[in-house]
């Protein structure tokens, strides 16, 4: 992926299998959001391709929803815009635990409530793949735990023997750990990936996230080290996205 001839992301291979929770982590400017945008089809990659299963429904929860207060809109109306059945709205709000705000103006919600409403909206599409860009931003610690639990529950709730996959961006590895299946640490390329515990011990991860004092150490960064991708990405599921 290039922006004005500056390489932002290179050599990325991202695959999300059905029922899998994949978390993207990486420092600011690592290209997490760009990668998500490519996966969503909002941005065309400058090279590489995006493969998705035919008829794949994606539920997307953007990083921040800037709701302009120029449009008077209640939460209920906002969710109805998805074109879902009318009875589905209270259900979705109930699932994300914000039934009480259904008739409030969208602009009056707190950060945490808004995140839950956005998640409810993403759910209304009955997605096969849920894409969440920093879903717990602006949510307090208890709320974060609840939201992660909720996301895990959503994945676990099978529908037609098919589990919903989750692709999530996070800046905080520690809270994500419990429920995620695969963590991919990126910094313009894939630094390391694998099960959370593997990633946590990976030198690249430690360099990026751990030990501030190490920052002064000699920079030993190899650009072609994709061999370290601990997990081999087997093309097993039909839900796949690659670049």
């Amino acid at each position: 992926m290039k922006f004005q001839n500056k390489e932002v992301l290179t050599g990325i291979n991202l695959q999300v299998n059905p029922g899998e929770i994949v978390t993207l982590i990486g420092p600011n400017g690592a290209g997490k959001t760009t990668l998500v945008r490519v996966a969503l089809g909002l941005q065309a990659p400058s090279s590489g391709q995006r493969l998705i299963r035919k008829g794949l429904r994606i539920g997307y929860m953007p990083q921040k929803l800037h709701i302009d207060d120029s449009m008077p809109l209640t939460v209920n109306r906002f969710l109805e815009l998805t074109g879902c059945r009318l009875t589905a709205v209270p259900d979705a709000l109930g699932r994300t635990g914000v039934s009480h705000v259904r008739h409030s103006p969208l602009q009056s919600l707190s950060g945490g409530e808004l995140q839950r409403v956005l998640l409810a909206r993403a759910l209304l599409h009955k997605p096969h793949l849920l894409v969440l860009d920093e879903p717990v931003q602006g949510v307090d610690v208890t709320g974060q735990k609840e939201l992660y639990q909720l996301i895990t529950d959503i994945r676990n709730a099978s529908r037609n023997r098919e589990h919903c996959a989750v692709l999530m961006v996070s800046h905080d590895l520690h809270l994500v750990m419990a429920s995620t299946d695969k963590v991919i640490c990126i910094n313009q390329h894939i630094c390391c990936s694998g099960h959370p515990h593997q990633v946590k011990q990976h030198p690249e991860y430690l360099r990026l996230f751990g030990g501030e004092s190490d920052e002064l150490a000699v920079y030993t960064h190899h650009h072609d080290h994709h061999g370290v991708d601990g997990h081999i990405l087997k093309p097993q599921g039909p839900v796949s996205e690659g670049k």
Binding site: L42, L65, M71, L81
Partner: peptide, 17 residues
């Protein structure tokens, strides 16, 4: 009307949908 409103609320969300 509906898609236009959707787009006005959040263009990218609408596009993904």
């Amino acid at each position: 009307w509906k898609p236009l409103l959707s787009m006005s609320v959040h263009a990218e969300l609408a596009q993904v949908e």
